[in-house]
Amino acid sequence: MPVDSTTFRTVLGQWPSGVCVVTTVGAHGAHGMTASSFSSVSLDPPLISVCLGNHLPSRTLLESAGKFAISFLGKDQAHIGRRFAGQNPEVTDRFAGLDWTMTPNGCPVLSDAVAWLDCRVAHTYPGGDHTIFVGEVTEAALPRVTAPLLFHSRTWGQVADPLPSSIQLSVDVADDDPLAQELRGRGARVRGDHTEFTVAADGTGLPSADWMAAAKLTGGCVIGYVSDAFDPAREAEVFATVDALAALGCDEIGLAEGVPASPLQVRRVLQDAKVRARPAALRVRLAGDHSLALVNALVAMKSGVTHFDTVAPGSGSAGLPLGDLLHLSRQLEVAGPIEPDLAHLRE
């Protein structure tokens, strides 16, 4: 006996998906709708599919036009998803006020989409009360790097990263300090073990490719830090600098906290910087002299960061204390270097 439609829809709602806007053109101009029933089909040739309800105007228009485009929405574009899903009935022109780009096939795509695909209809299949359109991808682009918008259980959301299984530490401690050798033996890294440089949020101080090539020859890890990386007024500059450091070939890219940042701002920056830094590992150098220091460390872990800079007891630095971060990781059951007996090493 077939399952009833209400139960079926509720069950399907437990499957999270990305969100896209499907656009096509007709005699009266552009038309678009929000869809989550999108899927890749083939890499060679590049094929994708989208399912449209047979009762929708978009379905008839798309079949007549023989072409369509897909705009993938970012985490900050839920309002666009709602608009093209018809959840804002007061909006009479869904395309108004948004920035659009025309594809080679003549379909509009969002200029600030996470990505877009331009397609021609290759196959059409009946699918119950929907029609399955298979599109051959003729053009593709990634206009903007940001986390995707998700849809789950009829709710718009964002990627929520789980806690990492382990963290890696670099500790600011003098190389001749007995603690340095103890930390190395327990899996941590001492700050002098790698080559590092710092650039301003706007990229000032970026080294040359020749300098980077010479640094790589030493065989150690090369880390490029961005100073004051969580300043909300410089977010765009920080992202551009992260892109530049990734292109330069840094092994790791560090974001240093200057003025104490809010957990919300730390999350905003790390969520996108993590994507931009790849394949380099992203690390953070958080301030430790304010009440939200450990909250920001937790937010960093939840944002997928596994590399942290800390300061050793008695170092005089204002960074995140080694003991505090180790205590937090133990409470969260995140594996890290075992805390050494700091007391006997300071006698």
Score class of each variant (00 low, 15 high):
residue 284 V to I: 15
residue 277 A to E: 01
residue 318 A to K: 14
residue 203 G to H: 04
residue 302 K to D: 12
residue 29 G to H: 12
residue 164 P to T: 05
residue 310 T to A: 15
residue 211 W to K: 03
residue 37 S to H: 11
residue 65 A to M: 12
residue 57 P to Y: 05
residue 18 G to Y: 08
residue 249 G to I: 08
residue 209 A to W: 02
residue 272 D to N: 12
residue 149 L to I: 09
residue 101 T to C: 10
residue 38 F to G: 04
residue 221 C to W: 04
residue 270 L to Y: 02
residue 310 T to H: 04
residue 290 H to A: 11
residue 189 R to P: 00
residue 68 F to D: 00
residue 323 G to I: 12
residue 140 A to C: 11
residue 314 G to D: 11
residue 84 F to A: 04
residue 180 A to S: 15
residue 198 T to P: 00
residue 325 L to I: 15
residue 273 A to C: 09
residue 207 P to Q: 07
residue 272 D to K: 11
residue 133 F to C: 06
residue 317 S to C: 08
residue 212 M to S: 04
residue 97 G to N: 10
residue 118 D to T: 09
residue 6 T to A: 15
residue 127 G to T: 08
residue 67 K to H: 13
residue 238 V to F: 05
residue 248 L to E: 04
residue 25 V to E: 12
residue 202 D to K: 06
residue 136 E to I: 10
residue 172 D to L: 14
residue 320 L to Q: 03
residue 109 V to E: 06
residue 122 A to F: 11
residue 115 A to K: 04
residue 321 P to T: 09
residue 298 L to Y: 14
residue 329 S to L: 01
residue 303 S to F: 02
residue 276 R to Q: 14
residue 313 P to Y: 11
residue 180 A to H: 06
residue 93 D to S: 07
residue 165 S to H: 11
residue 261 A to H: 03
residue 117 L to P: 01
residue 324 D to I: 04
residue 29 G to L: 08
residue 182 E to T: 15
residue 194 H to T: 14
residue 154 R to M: 10
residue 315 S to G: 11
residue 79 H to E: 13
residue 64 S to Y: 11
residue 144 R to N: 09
residue 97 G to P: 03
residue 246 A to P: 01
residue 118 D to I: 13
residue 83 R to D: 03
residue 10 T to E: 15
residue 313 P to T: 12
residue 259 V to N: 13
residue 34 T to K: 06
residue 10 T to I: 11
residue 57 P to S: 03
residue 229 A to E: 07
residue 78 A to F: 04
residue 277 A to N: 02
residue 22 V to M: 10
residue 167 I to E: 02
residue 286 L to V: 13
residue 241 T to L: 06
residue 158 Q to T: 14
